[in-house]
C-alpha cells in the first residue's frame, strides 16, 4: 500500500498509509485502539474504497479491483469479532470459502483433517448452525474457514480477542503451520505475547499513518520505540 487515504462518510480515517507486506512473512500491524488498523485491513480488502494512493498485489495495481476479485486472487480475510455466518452450519461456513469445491467431498480431505485436528470444535459442531457456538468456537470456525484452501495472503483481525489461552495456543499452531506452508500473513493483534511468536515484521500505526516499521527482532531490541508507540515494553 502506498499513500493510501480512506474516508468513511465525512471522516478521514487513513492519512496516507505506506505498508509493505513481504511475501512469505508474517507482518504484525500494531497500534492503539482507533489508530486505523481495522480500516487498513478493510481498505486492503476493498471493503472501503481508497480515496487516494494505490494498492499493489504482486506488482499488479488492484486499487480499483472489487472485493470479490481480490478474495479470488488468493486472499483469506478473517474479520474481527467472530465473523461467522450464524444461520449456516459450520460445514456450510467452511464450504463457502472453498472456491474450488462445490461439495464437501471435493475439499482436500487431508487439509480438512488437519483443520479438524487443530480446531476440534469444527469437527464436534460440524452440522450445527455456527450462531449457536460459543465465542471461541466461532473464532475457530472463522479461522478454519480462511485456511480451508491454501491462500497466498491471510489477513487476520485480532484473532485471539476473547479466547481462552488453550485455544490461543491452537490458533498459534495453526498459523505457524499456515506460515510454514508459505502463506503470507498480515496480522492485527493486541495480544503481543501471542503475536510475537509468529511475527517477522512489525508496523505500528498512529492516527491513520504507519509511524514505525521494522523487523520484529529490531523492534524487540528497541525499547525506546516500544515505549513511544505502544506505551509498554516487550
Amino acid at each position: 500500500m502506498a499513500g493510501v487515504h480512506t474516508h468513511i462518510g465525512a471522516y478521514h480515517i487513513l492519512h496516507g498509509v505506506d505498508l509493505v507486506v513481504p511475501k512469505g512473512q508474517v507482518t504484525l500491524l500494531l497500534g492503539r485502539n482507533g489508530a486505523g488498523k481495522t480500516t487498513t485491513l478493510r481498505t486492503l480488502m476493498g471493503l472501503w474504497a481508497a480515496s487516494q494512493g494505490s494498492i499493489r498485489w504482486n506488482g499488479q495495481d488492484i486499487t480499483a479491483t472489487d472485493t470479490a476479485s481480490r478474495a479470488r486472487l488468493g486472499v483469506g480475510y478473517v474479520p474481527e469479532s467472530m465473523a461467522v455466518f450464524a444461520d449456516l452450519t459450520v460445514a456450510e461456513n467452511l464450504l463457502l470459502a472453498a472456491h474450488k469445491a462445490s461439495r464437501m467431498e471435493d475439499v482436500d480431505a487431508q487439509r480438512l483433517q488437519w483443520i479438524k485436528q487443530l480446531f476440534p470444535a469444527v469437527e464436534t459442531f460440524w452440522h450445527y448452525p455456527a450462531g449457536k457456538l460459543s465465542g471461541g468456537q466461532k473464532q475457530m470456525v472463522a479461522v478454519a474457514r480462511a485456511v480451508i484452501e491454501p491462500r497466498e495472503l491471510l489477513v487476520i483481525d485480532e484473532p485471539s480477542k476473547g479466547l481462552a489461552p488453550a485455544i490461543v495456543a491452537n490458533l498459534l499452531e495453526a498459523l505457524k503451520e499456515v506460515k510454514r506452508q508459505g502463506t503470507t500473513i498480515l496480522l492485527v493483534e493486541q495480544n503481543l505475547a501471542f503475536a510475537r511468536r509468529l511475527g517477522d515484521q512489525v508496523a505500528v500505526m498512529e492516527d491513520g499513518r504507519i509511524v514505525h516499521a521494522a523487523s520484529q527482532a529490531d523492534f524487540i531490541a528497541d525499547q525506546a520505540a516500544q515505549q513511544r508507540y505502544l506505551g509498554l515494553s516487550l
Binding site: 472489487d66 470479490a68 478474495a71 479470488r72 465473523a83 455466518f85 456450510e92 463457502l96 462445490s102
Partner: peptide
C-alpha cells in the same frame, strides 16, 4: 451451494464479498 451464498449475503454482504462472491 448457491443457496448458502444467498444466506451468507442475507446475513452479512461484506463478509460474503470478502469470501469472493459478487
Amino acid at each position: 451451494p448457491f443457496g448458502s451464498v444467498l444466506k451468507a449475503i442475507r446475513e452479512n454482504e461484506f463478509r460474503a464479498e470478502a469470501l469472493g462472491y459478487r
